[in-house]
Every structure is written in structure tokens, then in C-alpha cells.
Design a protein around this nucleic acid. Structure first.
Length: 388
DNA sequence: AAGTCCCGCCATGCA
DNA sequence: TGCATGGCGGGACTT
């Protein structure tokens, strides 16, 4: 139990050198693989509670990594926090409901509840997040449309709760992007942009994208999304697969051995000497430099970098999973889609009261338009408003 | 103090 | 090379 985490036995953080071992591969330590192992370990009958320490030692990683996984799993309903160090296993069967809830929640406020000053509610924002089962609870506290943006605008209050930036919330918003729109393929860059409310300095974007990588990895290992490319731009992106039944997981061979051997795995392939040599000063220096640079080019009104680039996502039929607010349209049925979107427009436009949302909406329309014209080209459709 | 986990530096991997 | 990825752990925030 208290087998200490593998950690680095002894290592010289200095140097670079050394013997690098042959077999170190970051792939073997990826969050995605770790998640797969985690799932293989706990997604079985009889499991009802999961202890973080137990998981960490069984998987041979630090708790920090377990948090990464658990946080996103929880945001999809697979787990529920019970107490310190303790989670309740809900299983994959809880996913559909969770997705549905996210969809409804997202549809209701078009991805987020933005706060018009009259209904903010900064202070008491939620308390008990999800809890799918019983009641919907749609108080998706603030989130995505973080006020921020304008560097110097006066922020009413520091709506910057830690929770607002949590991996869990970000996961849910990322999922809403798929489930509440017609986008089927979205690149992490685009996702970050959308979730950030557009126009942001590189530093913030970079960090957001970094988080999205973590999320994408675990969602991928759950088969909720899959990596692909944008049809046109070729840029890597993720495709929403939705919940299609419970996938099967298998422990990676080494873990298996470790398990059967009753021994902590991981220790061996930990990249001891590879540790990055964080030369304090250079790191700090760099950080400062980046900060300044960030500030420098954060001119929020960069009219130049948004607008276009709408090729971030691809549209497609709606996810099979939870039936929801929007009808599942067929790709071929262009006219219907046109109709749907237009409906969507008139239905939602009125609610866009803040700039951020407006931009976001415009962004989507833009993307849709280009997609539309593209499709229309090879497959001219009769008339926009006549179904077939 | 212990538990959480945000953040972003910088190494890897792969065209 | 350059860009996409993502390991990793410092240290801030919560309990």
C-alpha cells in the first residue's frame, strides 16, 4: 500500500547526461495510456470505490497524474468524488446521462451562461456540481466565456475562481462544443479559441491548448473522441464519437506483469536522468520574457487573427448518442441543414448579449458558411429552403 | 498540514 | 527543422 511512488530514486538533476536508457519512451507514460490502464483496472464488477493512493501505487505514478484522469472521468460521470482520496466508481453506463445533461445544459445557454450583469451570481455560484442522476442542475456556473479578454478592462470582481479553470469544467465545455453544435471535428486550437472567447494572447492560448491535450488524451482512451485531421487543412484535430457502448480495456503488458508480480510498475521505466534541467534563472528569465511578450502582443483587438481561419472544424451529422435538442441531420441533406442552422440562428441570436458570444457565434456561422459553400459546390442543391 | 491541481517549461516525436 | 505533443513537478490554492 504505501509503496512509495516510483518517483525518481536518485537522480542528479543536473546534468544532462548520462546514460539515457534505451527504453525510455514517453509513450509508455502518456496520460492516455495511463488512463487506459486505470480503466482496465477499475472498470470491472465489484469495484465501487477507488482510492487515489491505491490507484497511484498500482499504476506506478504520482497522485498528480491520477488527479488528471479522475477529473475528466468525473466530468463525464464515470466517477464521483466521495471524500478525500476517495472516489465512487459509476462506470461507463453513467456516460449517456452525463452527456445528455451536458447537451441540455449547453443548449440552454449556448455553451455557457454568460452573465449579463443582472444575473451574475459570482459569489454563490454552484456548490454541488453534477450529480447527474437526480436532477439536471444546470447551473453551469460561469466558465468559458471568461470575462477576461480585455486586459485592462475593469473586472467587476475576480470571477477567477479556481474552479473556473479546472480540468473538469474545461472537459465539460470541450464536450459541449461537440454535443451542442454541429461540429464534428475540432482542432484543439479552435477549441481553445472558442472556449476562451476568442482573441487572446499566445500564452493563454498555449496553456489552454496544453490542458486540452490532457483532456483529449483521456477522452480518446475512452473512445469518446478520436484523433484525425481536418479534411482540408490537414491539421490534426479530434472527432467526436460519442458513447457507443462500453469499450474494453486491457492493461498494458508491463502493468500486467507488475500487477501479477504484486509489484509496483513504472519504477523501471521512469526517465530518471532525463529530467529536464530547469536552470532556474534561465527558466525564470524566459518566463518573464514570455510574459512581456504576451502582454505586448495581447492587444485584444487583433483584428487580424480571427475571422478567417474558420477552417477549424468540420461539420457533420450529429452524434448518435443522446438524442437531444437538435435533430440529427444527414450530411447529404443540405437543405435540411440549412434550415436547421437558420433556425438556430433566429432562435439564438437574440440571446447573444455580449461581445464574446457574438464573436463565437459569428465564428460558427463563418465556418458553417464555408462548409456549406464547399458542399454545395460538388453537390449543388436545389433550393435552400425546400427540403429536397 | 495534507490534499488538490493549475500552469507552463521544455523535451520528444514525427513529418 | 519546425511544429505537434505532452511529461513533469513547482508551487498556489483548498480543505
Amino acid at each position: 500500500m504505501s509503496d512509495l511512488p516510483p518517483e525518481n530514486p536518485n537522480l542528479s538533476l543536473t546534468s544532462s547526461s548520462s546514460s539515457l536508457h534505451h527504453s525510455y519512451s514517453r509513450k509508455q507514460k502518456s496520460l492516455g495510456l495511463l488512463c487506459t490502464n486505470f480503466l482496465a483496472l477499475y472498470n470491472r464488477h465489484g469495484i465501487e470505490t477507488i482510492g487515489l493512493d491505491d490507484a497511484a501505487s498500482k499504476l506506478g505514478v504520482e497522485r498528480r497524474r491520477i488527479y488528471d484522469i479522475v477529473n475528466v472521468l468525473e466530468s463525464v460521470g464515470v466517477l464521483t468524488k466521495r471524500a478525500k482520496n476517495q472516489y465512487t466508481w459509476k462506470g461507463f453506463s453513467a456516460i449517456p446521462a452525463a452527456l445528455k445533461e451536458l447537451q441540455e445544459e449547453g443548449a440552454k445557454d449556448t455553451f455557457h451562461r454568460f452573465y449579463t450583469n443582472e444575473n451574475v451570481k459570482v459569489s454563490d455560484d454552484e456548490d454541488d456540481e453534477e450529480e447527474s442522476s437526480s436532477q439536471p442542475l444546470s447551473s453551469s456556473q460561469t466558465d468559458t466565456s471568461k470575462p477576461v479578454s480585455l486586459p485592462q478592462s475593469s473586472d467587476p470582481s475576480k470571477i477567477d475562481n479556481r474552479r473556473d479553470k479546472s480540468l473538469g469544467l474545461l472537459t465539460q465545455n470541450f464536450i459541449k462544443l461537440f454535443v451542442c453544435s454541429e461540429a464534428r471535428i475540432i482542432s484543439l486550437d479552435e477549441a481553445a479559441k472558442l472556449l476562451l472567447g476568442d482573441a487572446h494572447n499566445t500564452s493563454i492560448m498555449r496553456t489552454k491548448v496544453r490542458r486540452l491535450y490532457d483532456i483529449a488524451n483521456v477522452l480518446s482512451s475512452m473512445n469518446l473522441i478520436e484523433k484525425t485531421h481536418n479534411l482540408d487543412s490537414r491539421k490534426p484535430a479530434f472527432k467526436w464519437l460519442g458513447y457507443n457502448g462500453e469499450p474494453t480495456f486491457t492493461l498494458s503488458s508491463d502493468l500486467m506483469q507488475a500487477e501479477s508480480k504484486k509489484r509496483v510498475f513504472g519504477t523501471d521505466l521512469t526517465n530518471v536522468s532525463v529530467k529536464r534541467s530547469r536552470t532556474h534563472e534561465s527558466a525564470t528569465e524566459r518566463r518573464i520574457k514570455m510574459k512581456q511578450q504576451a502582454i505586448a502582443d495581447s492587444s485584444y483587438n487583433q483584428s487580424s487573427d480571427d475571422a478567417h481561419e474558420s477552417r477549424g472544424y468540420e461539420f457533420g451529422p450529429f452524434a448518435p448518442a443522446a438524442g437531444g435538442t437538435y435533430p440529427a441531420a444527414r450530411l447529404e441533406d443540405n437543405s435540411k441543414r440549412a434550415f436547421d442552422v437558420e433556425n438556430l440562428v433566429s432562435e439564438y441570436r437574440p440571446s447573444y448579449q455580449n461581445q464574446v458570444l457574438k464573436d463565437l457565434f459569428a465564428h460558427y456561422m463563418d465556418a458553417w458558411k464555408s462548409w456549406y459553400s464547399e458542399v454545395t459546390q460538388n453537390n449543388p442543391l436545389p433550393d435552400t429552403s425546400k427540403r429536397h
